[in-house]
């Protein structure tokens, strides 16, 4: 299996290289957190807002850009197109599940984003006194684990929605609807701790925050001990749920697949 992964990875990397300019431009569209950061800094006016010090907003939104880019998956359009136009057929003829190809392609493009993203994480704490991250080895490990799980969860959610193209012709519009909920309940626009308590509590049971806020809060050292363990457990549960959902949708979808024009 490893050399199969490696081959898919290599091709994914080659593809990412072919599209490096586009990837860079796409990254520029992910700068909304900078706007949110400046809004909160001016609202705060040097005072704390809830549990957030002004410096925390800097850490949160700069870290947020990093987490978002690392977790982000953009395959729903490819997947819908492949199903609708029958481009899935050549992939189905190979003795390997196409999902690995999509995974490898997404992962292979990640390193290309790092040269832009890593300086952000360093720059924030340098420019804004008090901003920074909890970089003890244990916490970094916890961050990497929750980040990887966040990617896995986000990937499977998007894959599931993409697979709905077997039944409907506009799976991407469903994704757009999901994404708007995500913007709110993931903590991407506003830290979840600053919402009314009811919304905060609700968001803890929904899948959204486990694709974004959890690793970010870990990175900032805001979670630890039993809370962290509890959170990771919920995150794993959501991953398992969407993997199961994926398996069901995939086997039923293939039955429906009429390989249009393939």
């Amino acid at each position: 299996m490893w050399h199969k992964w490696w081959a898919l990875f290599r091709a994914g990397w080659g593809n990412a290289l072919a599209y490096r300019a586009e990837i860079f431009i796409w990254m520029l569209t992910g700068t909304l957190p900078l706007v949110m950061m400046s809004v909160w800094l001016s609202v705060a006016g040097g005072e704390a807002v809830g549990s957030f010090q002004p410096a925390d907003f800097v850490s949160y939104y700069l870290g947020g850009i990093f987490v978002r880019q690392m977790v982000g998956v953009w395959i729903v359009w490819d997947l819908e197109r492949a199903i609708r136009l029958g481009e899935l057929s050549p992939k189905l003829l190979r003795p390997i599940n196409p999902i690995y190809e999509y995974m490898a392609e997404n992962l292979a493009a990640k390193p290309m984003r790092l040269p832009v993203l890593l300086p952000l994480l360093v720059l924030g704490p340098l420019l804004y006194p008090g901003a920074g991250y909890e970089l003890s080895p244990a916490n970094v490990l916890a961050f990497l684990v929750t980040l990887a799980l966040a990617w896995l969860l986000y990937f499977f959610i998007q894959y599931c929605i993409g697979l709905l193209a077997f039944w409907m012709s506009q799976a991407t519009s469903l994704w757009q609807a999901w994404f708007h909920l995500w913007l709110v309940f993931s903590g991407y626009l506003i830290p979840l701790d600053l919402f009314p308590p009811l919304v905060t509590r609700l968001s803890a049971w929904l899948p959204f925050r486990y694709t974004f806020a959890l690793p970010l809060e870990v990175l900032m050292g805001r979670l630890g001990g039993t809370v962290l363990v509890h959170q990771v457990a919920i995150q794993v549960a959501w991953v398992l749920f969407f993997v199961a959902l994926y398996r069901m949708l995939w086997s039923r979808g293939l039955r429906r697949y009429s390989a249009v024009g393939a």
Binding site: A7, L8, R10, A11, G14, N15, G86, K91, R94
Partner: peptide, 21 residues
């Protein structure tokens, strides 16, 4: 319909198939 990766040389697809098969 094609299986060749559009933006890469064909040898890349062959190498993928080598691994997958």
């Amino acid at each position: 319909k094609q299986q060749l990766l559009w933006d890469l040389p064909a040898i890349e697809t062959l190498l993928i198939n080598k691994a997958i098969y």
